[in-house]
Design a protein around this nucleic acid. Structure first.
Ligand SMILES: [Zn+2]
Ligand SMILES: [Zn+2]
Ligand SMILES: [Zn+2]
Ligand SMILES: [Zn+2]
Lengths: 142, 142
DNA sequence: CTTGACCTTAGAGTATACTCTAGGGTTTAT
DNA sequence: ATAAACCCTAGAGTATACTCTAAGGTCAAG
């Protein structure tokens, strides 16, 4: 099938498919006649594999490694696949922890600010970011 | 003070300070004599304000808005500051939820794979990503 | 046979936040 | 006075994952 059909069936764009090809993730045959890309059903399966990798949080680099395993299973091991998976899990968990810390900080910032239409002169958020750590002085502007 | 001193005292690099200047976050005076940047104590405070914004999860764009409030408090309100803060909180929370979903998926992938040195032919991780959803066939390679 | 839909390539643009380089001038200390 | 250390600008490079454009060739329907 041509690139447009694979794009439609795979739920991605022709641009993205050409990008994946440049990255060696999905390299189709080319028609000898007109140089159009000619994708097979296997190529569609690979496109879906890539989408699942993405949905699971893998980078394109991880995905390339997983594709290598998929395409030559005998030459690879469960250990490799699991190692990639657990490494990514650890990455994401670290990122989550970092973001949760930020959310906690933002909660602290927000909960002490009145959020009103008054001047920010006594705003606790600005004060905290300035490291003055004063209370949002409500008496002063309410 | 010159850029190197502010960098050292603020815990960032001169490159970063020039970058922030290009982004209009922190624009110092320039010495008439030699065109060297001339930072004040207030500029140092601003650099620290920016660092705290970053640590709280704000983008440089958010930070620019917060700096505008900080530098003209009378012209801004608590509502503005709180709105930026809560919007960022929501962003980060959404990102966390997305990442947690990915971690859950990775956990499912990993827990059924033996992680052994055997061929990946029957690896549940690869099978799942191929959407075959088989069990990691341990009998086959153990 | 023409029109519109689709295909090709190479390369630039988007977003975020830096990070670094080249080429050249200034300051400071010995 | 000279060398190390520091400063300047403009612009390119890094990372990730696309996204789009320009200029042109091909295909299918009426
Ligand atoms: Zn208030
Ligand atoms: Zn406030
Ligand atoms: Zn196994
Ligand atoms: Zn396995």
């Amino acid at each position: 099938m041509k690139i447009g059909e694979l794009a439609k069936r795979g739920g991605l764009t022709a641009h993205t498919l050409r990008f994946y090809e440049k990255k060696q993730l999905l390299v189709p045959q080319k028609s000898a006649l007109n140089q159009y890309r000619d994708y097979t059903a296997d190529d569609l399966a690979t496109a879906q594999f890539i989408k699942r990798c993405k949905a699971s949080g893998f980078s394109l680099e991880d995905t390339a490694a997983l594709l290598q395993i998929k395409d030559a299973k005998d030459a690879h091991t469960c250990a490799e696949a699991k190692s990639i998976t657990l490494a990514k899990r650890a990455d994401l968990q670290a990122k989550i922890t970092e973001l949760q810390q930020m959310v906690a900080t933002l909660d602290e910032l927000a909960e002490r600010c009145c959020g009103g239409a008054e001047s920010a002169e006594f705003c606790s958020i600005i004060a905290d970011l300035e490291s003055r750590f004063e209370e949002c002085n409500h008496d002063a502007h309410h």
